[in-house]
Deep mutational scan, measured.
Amino acid sequence: MEVRTIKVFTTVDNINLHTQVVDMSMTYGQQFGPTYLDGADVTKIKPHNSHEGKTFYVLPNDDTLRVEAFEYYHTTDPSFLGRYMSALNHTKKWKYPQVNGLTSIKWADNNCYLATALLTLQQIELKFNPPALQDAYYRARAGEAANFCALILAYCNKTVGELGDVRETMSYLFQHANLDSCKRVLNVVCKTCGQQQTTLKGVEAVMYMGTLSYEQFKKGVQIPCTCGKQATKYLVQQESPFVMMSAPPAQYELKHGTFTCASEYTGNYQCGHYKHITSKETLYCIDGALLTKSSEYKGPITDVFYKENSYTTTIK
């Protein structure tokens, strides 16, 4: 009895394709271990004539594949690729409408935090270190965002349907971005203890939790000093293409032309909904596939993004 075979390709990165001759009487799992086709788990399936010449994702289970996976995804987590594939199996079914010149995501599976993050990423200057993220990001900007969303979920250790947080998501993504040249110098002034300067680099240099107003941050924000008295913390120097200011959701007025974009969060910790506000020729609110415009805006804002380049204080 002759062994019926077909020729397929296996890959971990969709760049390096490895030619395989597979036995049609055995499952993919018996031949390769966990195997995925377009995100779908085909591990328990036997090869079919229609699979001839198709590319299958496999887990990096030998040295060659491990090197290829690390170079593309910059992670050695053995569960990463499987999590990416199972997320992709959902995100490829989502709709990605162009809204006001940006790629958004039609609401499904509690994905409003991903839509808000995706919209924000198209408006701030950011370059990702893992080629996987950078490639998928370019495709997302062009309207094909399924891979990018699935990668975000995998890097953030999230599953489809789980509630997510924009600030946490951005923080994970910033860790995989090139923020080497970003720098922030802060000064804390206390009447009792004097003053202390701190220099922050990388992710810490672009994120701040405690106030939404970048102007206020430049002037000074009140913080408790270690001595128990009130101290003032203010920005001395900022070198970065953008800054992200966050605070627990509270009524906040966004003035046209003073910011790049913002995240609105309605609801409580267990259950809520994100919308995205962007400042173009007027203010726009993007909620999944829905767009509304207004000249002014007041609502429960939790993150505001500002364009920056270089700032030095005039406070002496």
Rank of each mutant, 00 (worst) to 15 (best):
M1V: 06
E2H: 09
E2L: 09
K7W: 10
K7T: 12
V8P: 02
V8I: 14
F9Y: 06
T10Y: 11
T10P: 07
D13C: 00
N14H: 07
N14Q: 11
N16T: 08
L17R: 10
Q20L: 05
Q20H: 12
M24R: 15
M24C: 14
M24I: 12
M26R: 15
M26V: 11
T27V: 14
T27A: 09
Y28I: 04
Y28G: 01
Y28W: 08
G29I: 00
G29C: 08
Q30L: 09
Q31W: 10
G33I: 03
P34A: 02
Y36L: 01
L37Q: 13
A40K: 12
D41N: 14
V42M: 13
T43V: 04
I45P: 02
K46P: 10
P47L: 00
P47C: 02
N49M: 15
H51M: 07
K54G: 09
V58D: 00
L59G: 08
L59D: 15
P60C: 15
P60V: 07
D62K: 11
D62N: 09
D62L: 06
T64K: 13
L65A: 10
R66S: 10
V67G: 13
A69I: 14
F70H: 10
Y72F: 09
Y72N: 14
T76F: 09
G82T: 14
G82E: 09
Y84E: 00
S86G: 10
K93E: 06
W94I: 01
P97A: 09
G101K: 04
G101W: 03
L102M: 15
L102S: 07
L102F: 08
T103M: 03
T103V: 12
I105M: 05
A108V: 05
A108L: 01
D109V: 04
N110W: 05
N110L: 02
C112A: 14
A115Q: 01
T116N: 15
A117E: 03
L118N: 02
L119I: 00
L119F: 01
L121S: 04
I124N: 05
I124C: 07
I124A: 03
E125Q: 15
L126V: 10
K127Y: 12
F128W: 10
P130H: 01
L133E: 01
Q134A: 11
Y137C: 05
Y138E: 13
R139N: 13
A142F: 13
G143A: 02
G143Y: 00
G143V: 01
E144H: 11
A145D: 01
N147R: 10
F148V: 02
C149F: 04
L151K: 04
L153V: 07
A154Y: 00
A154C: 05
C156P: 00
N157W: 03
N157S: 07
K158Q: 05
T159S: 12
T159G: 12
V160T: 04
V160G: 05
G161D: 05
L163C: 15
G164A: 11
E168V: 02
T169M: 08
T169D: 03
Q175R: 09
A177H: 01
N178F: 03
D180P: 02
L186M: 12
V188L: 10
C190R: 03
C190Y: 04
K191V: 08
K191I: 13
C193R: 03
Q195G: 11
Q197F: 10
L200F: 12
G202H: 08
G202Q: 02
V203G: 08
V203W: 14
E204K: 14
A205V: 02
V206P: 04
M209N: 09
M209V: 11
G210T: 06
L212G: 08
S213K: 03
Y214D: 14
E215T: 09
Q216Y: 03
F217N: 04
K219N: 09
V221R: 04
I223Q: 13
I223Y: 13
P224E: 14
P224I: 10
C225I: 00
T226P: 12
K229N: 11
Q230I: 15
Q230P: 13
T232A: 04
T232F: 09
K233H: 10
K233I: 15
Q237F: 13
E239H: 10
S240Y: 01
F242T: 06
M244P: 07
A247F: 04
A247K: 02
P248T: 09
P248C: 14
P249H: 04
P249D: 06
Q251M: 14
E253T: 11
T260Q: 13
T260A: 10
C261L: 07
S263R: 02
S263H: 12
E264F: 04
E264A: 06
Y265K: 15
Y265Q: 14
G267Y: 11
G267H: 14
N268E: 15
Y269R: 15
Y269F: 13
Q270F: 11
Y274V: 07
I277V: 09
T278C: 15
S279F: 02
S279H: 04
S279Q: 07
E281F: 02
E281A: 03
C285M: 10
I286L: 05
T292G: 09
S294F: 14
S295Y: 10
S295A: 12
E296Q: 11
E296R: 14
Y297F: 06
K298P: 06
I301R: 05
T302C: 15
V304K: 03
V304L: 05
V304A: 01
F305N: 04
Y306S: 04
K307P: 13
E308F: 14
N309H: 12
T313Y: 15
T313E: 10
T313H: 15
T314M: 14
T314K: 15
I315E: 11
K316E: 15
